[in-house]
Write a protein that binds this DNA or RNA. Sequence first.
DNA 1: TGAAGATTGACCGACCTGGTCAATGGATGC
DNA 2: GCATCCATTGACCAGGTCGGTCAATCTTCA
Lengths: 216, 216
Amino acid sequence: MADKFEGLSKEKRQRIINAGFEVFSQNDYRRASTDEIAARAGISKGLLFYYFHNKKSLYLYLFEYLKKMLIKLVVDERFMEITDFFEILEYSTQKKMEIWKKHPYFLDFAMRTYFSEKEDVSPFLKKTYKELEVVLYRQCFSHVDTYKFREGIDPFHVLKLLVWMSDGYLREVNMQGNGWDMEEIKKEYDGWIRMLRREAYKEEYWREEDKWESSK
Amino acid sequence: MADKFEGLSKEKRQRIINAGFEVFSQNDYRRASTDEIAARAGISKGLLFYYFHNKKSLYLYLFEYLKKMLIKLVVDERFMEITDFFEILEYSTQKKMEIWKKHPYFLDFAMRTYFSEKEDVSPFLKKTYKELEVVLYRQCFSHVDTYKFREGIDPFHVLKLLVWMSDGYLREVNMQGNGWDMEEIKKEYDGWIRMLRREAYKEEYWREEDKWESSK
DNA sequence: TGAAGATTGACCGACCTGGTCAATGGATGC
DNA sequence: GCATCCATTGACCAGGTCGGTCAATCTTCA
């Protein structure tokens, strides 16, 4: 399909892809203009259509790209080895952050695809997401050490809080730009995670530093 | 200005206002179309321009409306009386939620106005926000009981976590539609807040039920 | 020098935009 | 029945933007 496009230099390909993600992440499909994409990529509109025959195929290309990247970057072999609940979360938050740094518009784009309706392109997206969800959630948390949790603590609830927190955390990091006190925010976040771990786990599964810190 | 508009029935006025917030919250100013607003309000475009002479004044009307509502709904007399940090947060989260329920597009609209750039309407917004921020933050947290916090705990950090959490929480609630297990999510959220309170406050300022729960 | 591919941007017709306005409807008072 | 007044409509306008095209140029390299 986009064979011409694949032959490009990595840098140029990346520029175009980023421009696409940027514009499609900020407007819905209908209102995201190819003019703008071409401009932000620093190429002429003609060239954009030389690579992708039309808007729709450009969009679907980006969507496929996103899908591949997410699976490749998040669910790697290391990921599947981790059995500790908090380590999985920590690992995936870190991964998520790397992705965000490298592709700032990925997550917004993904959100928009997820909630798109009545667009030329929506039905295809809906179907794909159903499949993806299963892979990313069910399978990943199937081999978690649930015995470490205290009685009465539901890992699913803990997960939800962590998702809330990491969303907010990531947004904060993202706002600061390439931030001056990024390190501090990270430390802060880690502190809260340690607290949560102490709260949710039986004492024998706390980390060494947590025990020390808590008994001061 | 919009004197004709003020004479309308409450129901109709509300319909138009909601339509405006909806469309302006989903697209940036330039791309939000008056056609769509009129359609969603169930009136003709001509009538919309009969009430508001042009797009800009409609937009600014909505912005003023938002401002008044926020101040009226969030910063009431009760709010100013609270001195306990967690109570203030609880109160404002609850208020925020009420607003969200009543005006589902308020917050998105507000976010968009806050980040709008290079629009016909942006400079005015920027200025207004500077003023508003002072009122909503500085003044509100100036009379907080800081003595309740443990040594080494920075209330500002706690605040940040709470904002992260409540953002995620609110989004979750919002997603569920008029939700079936809204109550459960609320309970969950409250549980986490209690935990955080135990973590941040000196023991003598915990609530009764927290002490009991924690010493089980 | 020339052939092939990469790249441009002016250009097209279709559609959408904010905004207008003559025409209609319905209420009210006479 | 008629006249007045205002709310309301939607066809219409001129200007702009859209996805998409294409003849003309620029690059590359043999």
